[in-house]
């Protein structure tokens, strides 16, 4: 039971990190990333391949962060003078491209067999029996670090420009802000966080294959952000927990309705998740928590007004 809770909490931690990333890209800068799974894969495979080649785990994680940040920045260049809709399809197409490479370049990625026996970092130091718990602790620490860094960025002048661009890029450009440079940086920052999450994913599971990096991951991350409140990092932990509870809770649907086959229960869960996403968008568009700036604004004026 404890080990079950530990593994669930580790999933929640990974989802929270992905949510943080999406919160910078989408919540702050208004840039949709439908290819999150692809960037996640870039991070995971970079970390996995390097550690298999006996690179120090910290160096491998750093490499995963840098590689994903660079790739994200490059992909976001497609927003040059464009509406955000185009970024949505470009990132989606990118993640499809990543999946094709993962499946076909067997010499590098092992194809559909994936990469197995990824060495766990610092296993000699911690020991095998308490490893999962220690890993979870490390995740919590990393979440705290990322949270503090992101909050600083969000409240800095840089963050303010991002929100200005999100609200109206023409005005931001008129005020002399280099919209493209800000967008690319925002997307790269988000990418760095996704890269970190990807590396942790690879180290935790010690086995990765292309089927783990499909659109469902992206939908979960969106769900966590929407539930937690777009642009609000503090609500995200609640958002990620809610999504995980929903996911795990609906796992037991199968036991409640005995006539249902396993694949039916699985698809019913996904239907419920999609419905949940739509319902929140309709009834609770602001999510559970509010963005920092809006929260402050709300205290000054009418507390019941919503953005």
């Amino acid at each position: 039971m404890i080990s079950y809770a530990v593994s669930i909490l580790t999933f929640v931690s990974l989802a929270t990190l992905l949510g943080f990333a999406l919160n910078v890209q989408w919540g702050q800068a208004g840039m949709i990333n439908f290819g999150l799974a692809g960037f996640y894969a870039v991070g995971a495979y970079t970390a996995a391949l390097l550690s298999k080649a006996n690179v120090d785990p910290i160096a491998a994680t750093a490499a995963a962060i840098i590689a994903t940040a660079i790739v994200s920045g490059l992909v976001s260049l497609a927003t040059l003078k464009l509406r955000e809709d185009y970024l949505a399809i470009t990132t989606l197409a990118f993640s499809e491209g990543v999946r094709l490479v993962l499946m076909n370049e067997v010499w590098l990625t092992g194809g559909t067999d994936g990469i197995r026996d990824i060495p766990r970092p610092f296993i000699d130091l911690v020991g095998g029996d308490r490893y999962e718990t220690a890993f979870l602790g490390a995740c919590f620490v990393l979440i705290l670090v990322v949270y503090v860094i992101l909050e600083r960025i969000i409240r800095s002048p840089f963050g303010r420009v991002l929100r200005a661009i999100r609200e109206d890029d023409v005005v931001a450009a008129t005020l002399g802000k280099n919209v493209l440079a800000f967008r690319v940086k925002a997307f790269a920052i988000g990418g760095a966080v996704i890269g970190l999450a990807g590396a942790l994913h690879a180290f935790y599971f010690t086995y990765i294959d292309p089927s783990e990096f499909v659109g469902v991951v992206t939908v979960y991350a969106f769900m966590a952000v929407i539930v937690g409140g777009k642009g609000a990092n503090r609500g995200l932990l609640i958002g990620a927990c809610t999504v995980m509870v929903l996911l795990e809770g609906t796992r037991f649907l199968k036991d409640l309705v005995p006539a249902m086959a396993a694949h039916q229960a699985a698809s019913l869960r996904l239907v419920l998740i999609g419905l949940g996403l739509i319902l929140i968008l309709i009834f609770r568009p602001g999510g559970l928590s509010r963005e920092y700036r809006l929260r402050v604004a709300g205290q000054l004026h009418d507390p019941s007004s919503r953005a």
Binding site: D85, A88, V219, F222, V271, I273, G274, L277, I278, L281
Partner: peptide, 15 residues
């Protein structure tokens, strides 16, 4: 908001 609609359509696709 065209971005929110876009995300909603992703949810519809999922369903």
């Amino acid at each position: 908001d065209h971005i929110t609609l876009l995300v909603a359509s992703m949810g519809v696709a999922f369903v």
